[in-house]
């Protein structure tokens, strides 16, 4: 068991390391560096600067050192909680991100919860009543959900909300709470707004998970242990509910680990469409303005969050499946 946890944790750390290298590479991608950008801005505003000043700045930030050393310096700062400075906002990256990171996490996790709540019962129903009208409807809606890009679904919902309900479904807060400090009322307002992005983001994953749950349960339903369960006198409902459904949950738990990164990356685009106060819009604008410290930091944070989610789903799988717990797999 501990070997499994350690292996998973080590893999997570390794993945994070690779993500940090990619984030750093992104920061380094545009021609020139932070100093030349800063000098250009100073020149624009009419301030003359000496070459010594540039060299001094470069030395201060370590920009004259080897690229690996630069990565080391950057990583050291990141580990101390210093994600650098946003050129565009002229503020520390952490300040720009503010409470967008927790809100991003909240949106992604709610989307995941929505996915599970919808997909597992429908998947079970579809498998138990295979080829019934309900199964066909679920399959149809599932494929529809799978094929609809979630930003399009977001637009459709916004439009429908405007047209029929005469409300704006965009954002995570009503206007009066958007800049207000945190309070119980603001939290309530958040909970009212949360379902829309959760549904938009979760639909594609739910469609996929319905298929996975259905296929797994159909396989498990034919296993001899189900006949054993029925032969001992259990009712059909209990024989199916206790045994094959339980076994079919293992692959579902592991596919959550695969779905989660999709949800997080989907959230970036959907947040732009729904103008959510999450990381997505900031990431987009930082890329447009070549604000590379900000972009790199966001990619690093989203990556770390995703790795954490996958690690947690691995732990859930271990809790569900005794074969992993006892080191048999």
């Amino acid at each position: 068991m501990w070997a499994y946890i350690l292996r998973r944790a080590a893999l997570g750390v390794l993945t994070l390391f690779v993500i940090s290298i990619i984030s750093f590479a992104i920061i380094q991608l545009p021609p020139g560096d932070f100093v030349s950008t800063a000098l250009a801005e100073l020149a624009e505003s009419g301030t003359e600067t000496a070459d010594e000043f540039a060299a001094q700045l470069r030395a201060e930030y370590g920009l004259d050192r080897h690229i690996v050393v630069q990565y080391g310096i950057w990583m050291g700062r990141v580990l101390q909680g210093d994600l650098g400075t946003s050129f565009f906002h002229q503020k520390p990256v952490l300040e720009v991100i503010g409470d967008r990171l927790p809100l991003s996490m909240l949106v992604s996790v709610s989307a995941l919860v929505f996915t599970l709540l919808i997909a597992i019962p429908i998947g079970i129903y579809s498998a138990v009543r295979q080829y019934s009208a309900g199964d066909h409807i679920a399959t149809f809606l599932g494929f529809l959900g799978l094929a609809t890009p979630n930003f399009l679904l977001a637009l459709v919902m916004l439009y429908a909300g405007f047209l029929w309900l005469d409300v704006s479904l965009a954002g995570l807060f009503s206007v009066e709470y958007a800049t207000a400090p945190w309070s119980l009322a603001k939290l309530g307002d958040l909970l009212v707004h949360l379902p829309i992005p959760a549904i938009v983001l979760g639909t594609a994953g739910a469609a996929q998970l319905i298929r996975i749950t259905r296929a797994n349960l159909l396989d498990e339903k034919r296993q001899p242990y189900v006949t054993t369960a029925r032969a001992k006198g259990l009712s059909n409902r209990r024989a199916i509910g206790k045994y094959p459904v339980r076994v079919a949950m293992n692959p579902v738990a592991s596919s959550v680990g695969l779905l989660f990164p999709n949800i997080v990356s989907g959230a970036v685009i959907v947040s732009v469409v729904l103008s959510l106060p999450t990381m997505g819009p900031v990431l987009l604008s930082s890329l447009l303005s070549q604000d590379m410290y900000l972009a790199g930091a966001i990619i690093l944070l989203l990556g770390a969050f995703t790795v954490l989610g996958v690690f947690l789903s691995d732990l859930a799988l271990m809790w569900l499946d005794p074969r992993i717990r006892h080191g048999n797999l």
Binding site: Q223, P224, Y225, T227, T228, A229, K242, Y243, R246, V247, N250, L320, D321, P322, R323
Partner: peptide, 8 residues
């Protein structure tokens, strides 16, 4: 092998 549930 398979007539008992593997997770119970």
């Amino acid at each position: 092998m398979t007539s008992f549930s593997p997770v119970h």
